[in-house]
């Protein structure tokens, strides 16, 4: 990693001529396009995620964030374009294989397994993808799951069921379950929606700590509240195309972004 400005220039160039190479970062999107019928949800989007950065992926509602996200995690394949992960072409790889490759995600509408405790939710993510495994009986999984629960701040609530957790607790559970898959890159979908100020701060602290431990993070959000202090770099998209890219300050002052956002009320 060289200096911050280097970064900017490199990715600015990317935005300008629209071409990236597979080795530009941990995760590289090369002209990703997704059409639903006649609707172009993602319009030849290219960008790279550097190792160990926190990238903000920002855009108003309906800008195509979730669609891009889903093309990357393998929920559905892009119409055209290539996704590279660790330099390898992973376009159209299914979701669980992406997770095994080290790319984990959280769900915006939290999706815990309601029928089991927090601890067991996390334990499931530690289960090997094998037909016959007795690993769970040796008690190691439980210890490890408990450790992860503590890591994400659920140490005292491991034995609760998800419906007993408050909103912020469910977010922590999503994070814990994703971390249990030992990701190198974590895609976090709209973490701050519905959180109070102090909660945003403590989740941000957790994400920063995880980054310091070596994790790369992409945080998706439609508003920038809480996000600008967290991210190293941001990408703003609208109508499926990138409209701005740079450090938080630059994004905030970008006239196109202001236009896209100031019509609304949230910046």
């Amino acid at each position: 990693m060289s200096t911050e400005t280097d970064h900017g220039e490199e990715t600015d160039a990317v935005a300008a001529n629209g071409s990236v190479s597979p080795d530009d970062g941990l995760l590289v999107l090369d002209e990703i396009r997704k059409e639903f019928g006649g609707l172009v949800a993602v319009d030849d989007l290219s960008f790279a995620v550097e190792e160990q950065e926190i990238l903000g992926f920002i855009g108003p509602n309906g800008a195509g964030k979730s669609t891009t996200f889903n093309c990357v995690v393998g929920r559905f394949p892009p119409t055209s374009g290539t996704v590279y992960y660790k330099g390898e072409d992973v376009t159209g790889t299914n979701a669980h294989t992406m997770v095994q490759k080290g790319l984990a995600r959280t769900f915006q509408e939290f999706r815990p397994f309601e029928d089991r405790t927090v601890l067991k939710n996390v334990s499931l993510a530690l289960t090997p993808n094998r037909m016959f495994s007795m690993q769970g009986l040796r008690g190691k999984t439980k210890e490890k799951a408990a450790e992860i629960c503590k890591r994400v701040g659920l140490g005292d609530r491991m034995h609760m069921t998800p419906d007993e957790l408050p909103h912020a607790g469910l977010l922590r559970l999503e994070l814990g379950r994703a971390l249990a898959t030992k990701p190198d890159l974590l895609l976090v979908d709209e973490p701050f929606a519905g959180l109070s100020g102090p909660e945003v701060e403590s989740i941000s602290d957790l994400l920063l700590e995880l980054r310091d431990e070596g994790l790369t993070l992409v945080v998706v959000d439609h508003n920038m509240r809480g996000l600008l202090s967290l991210i190293d770099r941001g990408i703003v998209i609208q109508f499926g195309s990138m409209i701005a890219e740079g450090d938080p300050e630059a994004i905030k002052n970008d006239p196109t972004v202001q236009e896209a956002y100031l019509g609304g009320d949230e910046l």
Partner: peptide, 27 residues
């Protein structure tokens, strides 16, 4: 053992099972 919780998780939410790196199809 390990397969039981995966089976019941498929009953609960297949997408979430995929998201923890397990193949619902296989199970």
């Amino acid at each position: 053992t390990d397969a039981g919780p995966v089976f019941t998780a498929i009953r609960e939410d297949e997408d979430a099972v995929e998201a923890v790196g397990l193949s619902p199809a296989k199970f």
